[in-house]
Structure formats: C-alpha cells, structure tokens
Nucleic acid binder design. Structure first.
Length: 278
DNA sequence: CCTGCTACCTGATGGC
DNA sequence: TGCCATCAGGTAGCAG
C-alpha cells in the first residue's frame, strides 16, 4: 500500500518521464476509478493539456496541467504502469502483464496507466488541488521544514485519541499510513495505545525524530531501486527492506527480543513490542 | 471541533 | 478438489 515514501519516489521518478508532455488522449476503461466524477469530466479536463509538473501532497500524486491538475490516490493497491508506445488493443499478443488498466493517459511519448484491481483508488481532474476536500484538509507534511518537534507537541496537545490513530489521521499529519505509523512508534519506543496528549515533551521529540527517520529511510529504499512502472513488484520492494515491526506478530523484537504483538486499533492491525514500547 | 463506526471492493486465505 | 465465508486496508460520509 503506497504511503508517503512510495508516492514521493513515484513523483520524483515520474516527473522526469512525463513533465513537458501533452496528454493526447485519455481513456477511462473502468469508470469506477473516477467516481464520483464522470469519465467525460476527466477526459475534457486533461485532453490536450500539457503536464507541467508532478508533485506529492500527502499520499496524493498530482499531475499539474496547464489548466488544473489530475489527482491520483492509490489507496491500497493502486499502481501506475507505463508503455513506451501507444498501447494496442487489437492484434499482437497482449504484453506480458495483461493487467487491466482503469485509466489510460496517452501522452506524446508513451502511455501512463492507472491500475487498481480492487477499485479503491481514484483519479480526478480538479480545477485546483484544493477543490478536493481530501487534499484541502491535509495536515502538515512530515518531510517539510515546518514539521518540527514543537509542531508535533502542538498536534499531540489536545488529542484524546490513541497515538497510532492520531498518526494515521491525514488531517493532522499527511502521509503516514498503517505501516509507517507502526514503524515510527516502534522506533520511538512508544506504546501505540498511549493517549496522544499524555506524551512528555521529551517523548514528543523522540516521536518527531522517529517519524522523520522512518520516512527518510523508507524513501531511500523506495529510490533504490528507483520506481519501475513496468514492474508491479517494485511497489512492494521498498517497504520490505524498511520494516522492523510491521507484520511480525509473534516474532522476536529486533531491539529487545521481546515478542511482537498485533492488536486492533480503529479496525486496523497495529504491531508493536510490549516489552520496549512504553 | 472531536471521535468512532461503516461502506466501499476484490484477491488471498482458511475451513470443511 | 472445490466451494464459501472471512479478512485486509485508506478514506468519505455519517452519527453522536
């Protein structure tokens, strides 16, 4: 599931590939991917437009156009694929991965496809990024200069929620998902069940440092190897190298040899070490 | 404003 | 072997 590091790596790599190209044509093959918009809205918004830039907002990927932008959200399983030549729908054997494509952007120099078999992900055209409530309401980006220990302290300040749930709230901190929230709390040696407002200033500083460390390290992993839009496996290769607790239920903690536990918070799995996370 | 719950969707998994 | 029920997970929308 792409979280901030994956989307950031994709943005940097895709930027070099598509910036300056024009969207010759847009095909919506599975209209569920553009809901609640209509395929026509997306097509009219993008066709003929030049892609001026690619950026990330939280877990959203934005294609900045001459007029407006396209916002893509991968949710759980969304991916991007790339074809150098215009995809051919007839003749010839299908290319190796005969994956279904939900939305295809035919550019001047190739085709960019949005793929999501589970159909949770979304692609929208927006006159301005802020027209999307999800984007407008995003909290601070943890890799931005404004993300300081003091800022973390303020965010924690009034929240009665469990720490893990706060970290995953996109309107507070933009970009942490289920995996890196667990990873950051492990790194900070903090129990995910703690009430956010109860952290000491010292613990808040530890949390800040852990979040930044975990995301930066994961981003490095996601950039080496760099995103390969022909290889669906890439989307998982970065995460695997970076994981210290996630999905390790019952196995020994890499720090204290305690037994990693899995609990449920807000209907999601949380992994932590009860022995060294207090 | 804050918090918590559910629907959305489908591949993978496990039980019988 | 095959079928069916269950589960995972990010976000929007709704309820309290």
């Amino acid at each position: 599931m792409p979280e901030l590091p994956e989307v950031e790596a994709v943005a940097r790599t895709l930027r070099r590939r598509v910036a300056g190209q024009r969207v010759v044509r847009c095909r919506v093959l599975h209209s569920i991917a553009v809901r609640p918009q209509s395929p026509a809205t997306l097509r009219r918004g993008v066709e003929g437009q030049r892609i001026e830039g690619v950026e990330r907002r939280g877990k959203y990927l934005l294609l900045r156009l001459a007029r407006g932008c396209v916002a893509l959200h991968f949710r759980l399983d969304g991916q991007l694929v790339w074809f150098d030549s215009p995809a051919r729908s007839t003749g010839g054997r299908p290319r190796r991965p005969a994956r279904h494509i939900d939305v295809a952007f035919e550019l001047t120099g190739g085709t960019l496809g949005f793929v999501d078999r589970r159909h949770f992900g979304r692609v929208q055209w927006l006159a301005r990024a802020e027209d999307s409530p999800g984007i407008r309401n995003l909290g601070i980006d943890p890799l931005s200069p404004g993300f300081t220990p003091e800022r973390v302290q303020t965010l924690l300040g009034k929240a009665r929620r469990a720490l893990k749930l706060l970290l995953m709230d996109q309107t507070r901190i933009a970009g942490l998902g289920n995996i890196y929230a667990s990873e950051a709390l492990w790194r900070a040696r903090l129990d995910p069940r703690r009430r956010a407002a109860r952290l000491s200033p010292q613990e808040a500083r530890r949390l800040h440092k852990a979040i930044v460390y975990v995301l930066r390290r994961a981003l490095e992993c996601c950039l080496h190897p760099a995103p390969d839009f022909r290889n669906p496996e890439w989307w998982f290769s970065g995460v695997e190298k970076a994981l210290r607790v996630y999905d390790r239920e019952g196995r020994p903690c890499r720090r204290c040899r305690g037994r990693i536990r899995r609990i449920e918070q807000g209907g999601r799995s949380t992994y932590f070490c009860p022995c060294c996370q207090k």
